[in-house]
Protein backbone atom coordinates (compact mmCIF):
# COMPACT_ATOMS: atom_id res chain seq x y z
CA UNK A 1 0.00 0.00 0.00
CA UNK A 2 2.70 2.37 0.91
CA UNK A 3 4.54 1.34 -2.23
CA UNK A 4 1.70 2.20 -4.49
CA UNK A 5 1.19 5.60 -2.84
CA UNK A 6 4.81 6.32 -3.46
CA UNK A 7 4.34 5.35 -7.03
CA UNK A 8 1.43 7.64 -7.39
CA UNK A 9 3.41 10.50 -5.95
CA UNK A 10 6.18 9.93 -8.43
CA UNK A 11 3.78 9.89 -11.30
CA UNK A 12 2.18 13.03 -9.99
CA UNK A 13 5.45 14.80 -10.17
CA UNK A 14 5.82 13.95 -13.83
CA UNK A 15 2.64 15.79 -14.69
CA UNK A 16 2.45 19.10 -16.45
CA UNK A 17 2.22 22.47 -14.83
CA UNK A 18 -1.47 22.44 -14.68
CA UNK A 19 -1.24 20.68 -11.39
CA UNK A 20 -2.93 17.56 -10.26
CA UNK A 21 -6.32 16.50 -11.52
CA UNK A 22 -8.93 15.96 -8.86
CA UNK A 23 -12.41 14.57 -9.09
CA UNK A 24 -14.84 16.76 -7.23
CA UNK A 25 -17.95 15.41 -5.61
CA UNK A 26 -20.51 16.27 -2.96
CA UNK A 27 -20.38 13.87 -0.02
CA UNK A 28 -23.49 15.13 1.68
CA UNK A 29 -25.47 18.33 1.43
CA UNK A 30 -22.95 21.23 1.30
CA UNK A 31 -19.86 19.06 1.97
CA UNK A 32 -17.62 19.06 -1.10
CA UNK A 33 -14.73 16.63 -1.36
CA UNK A 34 -12.09 15.86 -3.93
CA UNK A 35 -10.18 12.72 -4.77
CA UNK A 36 -7.02 12.60 -6.82
CA UNK A 37 -7.78 11.15 -10.21
CA UNK A 38 -5.02 8.53 -9.99
CA UNK A 39 -6.97 6.82 -7.24
CA UNK A 40 -10.29 6.96 -9.03
CA UNK A 41 -11.05 4.04 -11.24
CA UNK A 42 -14.52 4.89 -12.39
CA UNK A 43 -17.67 6.83 -11.57
CA UNK A 44 -21.12 5.48 -12.27
CA UNK A 45 -24.71 5.66 -11.34
CA UNK A 46 -25.90 2.52 -9.56
CA UNK A 47 -29.62 1.71 -9.45
CA UNK A 48 -30.64 0.42 -6.03
CA UNK A 49 -31.83 -2.84 -7.61
CA UNK A 50 -28.20 -3.67 -8.44
CA UNK A 51 -27.09 -3.16 -4.82
CA UNK A 52 -27.31 -6.34 -2.80
CA UNK A 53 -27.75 -5.61 0.93
CA UNK A 54 -26.01 -8.03 3.25
CA UNK A 55 -27.30 -8.60 6.80
CA UNK A 56 -25.28 -8.19 10.01
CA UNK A 57 -22.92 -5.57 8.57
CA UNK A 58 -21.71 -2.45 10.40
CA UNK A 59 -23.60 0.75 9.78
CA UNK A 60 -22.10 2.58 6.81
CA UNK A 61 -21.62 -0.44 4.59
CA UNK A 62 -24.57 -0.48 2.25
CA UNK A 63 -23.94 -3.83 0.60
CA UNK A 64 -22.28 -5.46 -2.37
CA UNK A 65 -22.21 -4.56 -6.05
CA UNK A 66 -20.40 -5.96 -9.04
CA UNK A 67 -18.62 -4.03 -11.71
CA UNK A 68 -16.69 -5.49 -14.61
CA UNK A 69 -16.73 -8.99 -13.09
CA UNK A 70 -15.58 -7.76 -9.73
CA UNK A 71 -17.51 -7.63 -6.48
CA UNK A 72 -17.11 -4.42 -4.45
CA UNK A 73 -18.24 -3.22 -1.06
CA UNK A 74 -20.41 -0.10 -1.22
CA UNK A 75 -19.70 2.34 1.62
CA UNK A 76 -21.67 5.40 2.70
CA UNK A 77 -18.82 7.91 2.56
CA UNK A 78 -20.67 10.60 4.51
CA UNK A 79 -21.19 8.24 7.42
CA UNK A 80 -17.56 7.13 7.19
CA UNK A 81 -16.32 10.74 7.28
CA UNK A 82 -18.81 11.65 10.01
CA UNK A 83 -20.31 14.50 8.04
CA UNK A 84 -23.84 13.21 8.07
CA UNK A 85 -25.75 10.37 6.43
CA UNK A 86 -26.47 9.75 2.79
CA UNK A 87 -30.04 10.06 1.70
CA UNK A 88 -31.08 6.44 1.08
CA UNK A 89 -34.37 7.22 -0.51
CA UNK A 90 -33.45 7.76 -4.21
CA UNK A 91 -33.65 5.04 -6.81
CA UNK A 92 -29.96 5.31 -7.58
CA UNK A 93 -26.63 6.18 -6.01
CA UNK A 94 -23.75 8.05 -7.48
CA UNK A 95 -20.81 5.74 -6.98
CA UNK A 96 -17.09 6.57 -7.09
CA UNK A 97 -14.91 3.49 -7.31
CA UNK A 98 -11.55 4.05 -5.60
CA UNK A 99 -8.61 1.84 -6.38
CA UNK A 100 -5.17 1.84 -4.85
CA UNK A 101 -2.93 -1.03 -5.56
CA UNK A 102 -4.96 -4.23 -5.67
CA UNK A 103 -7.91 -3.27 -3.56
CA UNK A 104 -10.89 -1.23 -4.55
CA UNK A 105 -14.01 0.05 -2.91
CA UNK A 106 -17.20 1.80 -4.06
CA UNK A 107 -18.03 5.05 -2.30
CA UNK A 108 -21.65 6.19 -2.42
CA UNK A 109 -21.80 9.99 -2.60
CA UNK A 110 -24.56 12.50 -2.98
CA UNK A 111 -23.51 13.77 -6.36
CA UNK A 112 -20.45 13.44 -8.60
CA UNK A 113 -19.11 16.78 -9.68
CA UNK A 114 -16.48 17.66 -12.25
CA UNK A 115 -12.74 17.32 -12.72
CA UNK A 116 -10.65 20.25 -11.60
CA UNK A 117 -6.94 20.87 -11.71
CA UNK A 118 -5.24 22.03 -8.59
CA UNK A 119 -1.68 23.39 -8.24
CA UNK A 120 -0.03 21.77 -5.25
CA UNK A 121 0.68 25.23 -3.94
CA UNK A 122 -2.98 25.90 -3.56
CA UNK A 123 -3.45 22.99 -1.22
CA UNK A 124 -3.95 24.24 2.29
CA UNK A 125 -3.88 22.38 5.59
CA UNK A 126 -7.15 21.53 7.23
CA UNK A 127 -8.67 24.30 9.31
CA UNK A 128 -8.73 23.73 13.05
CA UNK A 129 -12.50 23.72 13.41
CA UNK A 130 -12.94 20.81 11.04
CA UNK A 131 -15.12 17.84 11.94
CA UNK A 132 -13.09 15.22 13.83
CA UNK A 133 -14.15 12.34 11.63
CA UNK A 134 -12.53 13.95 8.60
CA UNK A 135 -9.06 14.23 10.01
CA UNK A 136 -7.82 10.68 9.37
CA UNK A 137 -8.94 10.71 5.74
CA UNK A 138 -8.23 14.25 4.47
CA UNK A 139 -4.85 15.39 3.17
CA UNK A 140 -5.84 19.00 3.12
CA UNK A 141 -8.32 21.32 1.61
CA UNK A 142 -8.58 24.02 -0.97
CA UNK A 143 -10.82 26.94 -1.61
CA UNK A 144 -12.71 27.07 -4.75
CA UNK A 145 -15.25 29.87 -5.33
CA UNK A 146 -15.92 30.25 -1.62
CA UNK A 147 -16.47 26.52 -1.09
CA UNK A 148 -14.09 24.39 0.92
CA UNK A 149 -13.14 21.21 -0.90
CA UNK A 150 -11.66 18.51 1.29
CA UNK A 151 -9.01 16.58 -0.54
CA UNK A 152 -9.38 12.94 0.53
CA UNK A 153 -6.77 10.15 0.55
CA UNK A 154 -8.03 6.97 -1.09
CA UNK A 155 -5.56 4.77 0.75
CA UNK A 156 -6.69 6.12 4.08
CA UNK A 157 -10.29 5.36 3.18
CA UNK A 158 -9.34 1.82 2.21
CA UNK A 159 -7.54 1.47 5.56
CA UNK A 160 -10.61 2.64 7.50
CA UNK A 161 -11.19 0.51 10.63
CA UNK A 162 -14.78 -0.24 9.68
CA UNK A 163 -13.57 -1.90 6.50
CA UNK A 164 -10.78 -3.66 8.25
CA UNK A 165 -13.07 -5.14 10.81
CA UNK A 166 -15.23 -6.29 8.00
CA UNK A 167 -12.29 -7.69 6.18
CA UNK A 168 -11.38 -9.65 9.26
CA UNK A 169 -14.68 -11.18 9.40
Amino acid sequence: MVKSSALSVTTDQTRKNLGEAYLKFEVSLGVQAGLIMKQVQEVLVLPTSQLTPIPNLPVGILGLMHRRSRVLWVVDLALLLGVGVLDYSPQQYDIVIVRTGGSAIALAVRQVGTISWVQPAHVQPLPSDVIKGLIPYARGCMLQSQDIVFLLDGEAILQAPILQANADE
Binding site: A21, L23, M37, V43, L44, D94, V112, I115
Partner: peptide, 16 residues
Protein backbone atom coordinates in the same frame (compact mmCIF):
# COMPACT_ATOMS: atom_id res chain seq x y z
CA UNK B 1 -26.55 15.59 -18.54
CA UNK B 2 -25.52 13.93 -15.28
CA UNK B 3 -24.81 10.69 -17.12
CA UNK B 4 -22.81 12.63 -19.71
CA UNK B 5 -20.85 14.25 -16.92
CA UNK B 6 -20.09 10.92 -15.39
CA UNK B 7 -19.06 9.52 -18.72
CA UNK B 8 -16.82 12.55 -19.31
CA UNK B 9 -15.20 12.00 -15.92
CA UNK B 10 -14.68 8.35 -16.69
CA UNK B 11 -13.18 9.32 -20.02
CA UNK B 12 -10.90 11.73 -18.20
CA UNK B 13 -9.86 8.99 -15.75
CA UNK B 14 -9.11 6.63 -18.60
CA UNK B 15 -7.16 9.37 -20.39
CA UNK B 16 -5.15 10.15 -17.26
Amino acid sequence: AVQTNLLAINAGIEAA
